[in-house]
């Protein structure tokens, strides 16, 4: 087995697909340098830089996809979707429905997301629940390099629009670009197993909407995505020492949501704790509760999410983002 870092895995899966399918093109701001390894292999026609004009280039990616290309459009950070949401909300997500199912948008929007390195709440949001709220969008949020590469391949083959989110704390290359490369004096709480791990020799697509149990547990199932999965695993270790058997379910995609796995977990343990780095209100955590309650499964429920604008200061940020202590406390509270 070979090992790769998270972003390396995504780029590797992308390169494998680009080598097979000449319709895949990649564009976004500074992409010629940020994806320079793709540029020197696939050339400037297929790996392009854009002006800082998200409304134009994300909007253009939608119809380019409809015309037969397979665009991968990159945003500097998912937060900046704010300036071009229309392209996804009102166009990419709607075409298939409006065309009576006759036309689709095979587009991948790739964007870094998430916090934990002190940039503040305009650059560190997760937004996957907010995006998954929109019918017609697929939202993928991997937690390991192997999943990142496999699911990226899936995203490329998918016939509809996919938002592929890459948590910056898992991405060695984003952290290096955003500042740690220029100094050795800062430390981030990077989950090792998420940042670097074993990957297959050849990438194969992984199924969408299929959660994976990262750790079995009989008393409670902690449900999460991206960095939250690793925080949940840390919490489960601590809980074990207290005699509580906590499992961890990694959703891998927020839309489609693996409702079968969620219901099974609720049925088996009777307790769910959702750890969601996205905002608490009106989001993934509430959706998980609804999915289980609609199935008539009685369940004890708790959630550890981001409740407010993410503050800039690292010590404040650490309290606002889900962490081991908060997860442990939430589970203990359910058990008492």
């Amino acid at each position: 087995m070979k090992k790769m870092s998270f972003t390396q895995a995504v780029d590797d899966a992308l390169a494998q697909a680009m080598a097979k399918d000449p319709q895949i093109i990649v564009f976004g701001e500074d992409i010629p340098l940020l994806r320079r390894e793709l540029l020197v292999r696939f050339g400037p026609q297929r790996v392009r830089g854009t002006p800082i004009s998200e409304s134009a280039f994300v909007g253009a990616a939608v119809t380019a996809a409809m015309a037969g290309l397979r665009p991968v459009v990159e945003l500097y950070m998912v937060d900046f979707l704010g300036v071009c949401l229309d392209a996804l909300l009102n166009h990419a997500a709607k075409v298939e429905a409006f065309s009576g199912g006759k036309w689709s948008v095979p587009l991948v929007v790739r964007a870094p997301c998430g916090g934990g390195y002190g940039d503040g709440g305009q650059h560190e949001q997760s937004l996957w629940g907010w995006l998954a709220h929109i019918p017609g969008l697929t939202v993928v949020v991997p937690a390991t390099p192997a999943d990142a590469g496999g699911l990226f391949l899936t995203a490329l083959q998918h016939e509809g629009p996919v938002v592929f989110l890459e948590h910056k704390l898992l991405s060695e290359s984003w952290l290096e670009f955003l500042g740690s490369g220029g100094r050795q004096t800062v430390q981030y709480n990077v989950p090792e197993a998420g940042a670097r791990g074993e990957v297959p020799q050849i990438w194969k697509p992984l199924p969408l909407g299929q959660a994976i149990e990262r750790r079995p547990g009989g008393d409670v199932m902690i449900v999460s995505a991206a960095v939250g999965v690793h925080r949940a695993l840390e919490a489960a270790e601590s809980l074990e020492q207290q005699g509580i058997s906590a499992g961890v379910l990694d959703l891998r995609s927020v839309s489609p949501l693996d409702t079968t796995a969620l219901r099974a977990a609720a049925q088996n343990t009777g307790r769910l704790c959702v750890v969601d780095e996205d905002y608490e209100g009106f989001g993934l955590s509430g959706e998980v509760a609804a999915v289980v309650l609609e199935a008539g499964i009685p369940v004890q429920f708790s959630r550890v999410c981001t409740q407010s604008t993410i503050p800039y200061a690292r010590h404040l940020e650490d309290q606002v983002l889900p962490n081991r202590e908060r997860i442990v406390a939430a589970v203990q509270n359910m058990m008492s």
């Binding site: 020197v40 292999r41 400037p44």
Partner: peptide
């Protein structure tokens, strides 16, 4: 990356390298 087996012809790769 530039020496990887599959991908565009060398002429196009060179154009990419020139950009970097």
């Amino acid at each position: 990356a530039i020496l990887k087996k599959d991908g565009e012809p060398f002429r196009i790769r060179l154009a990419g390298l020139r950009k970097v």
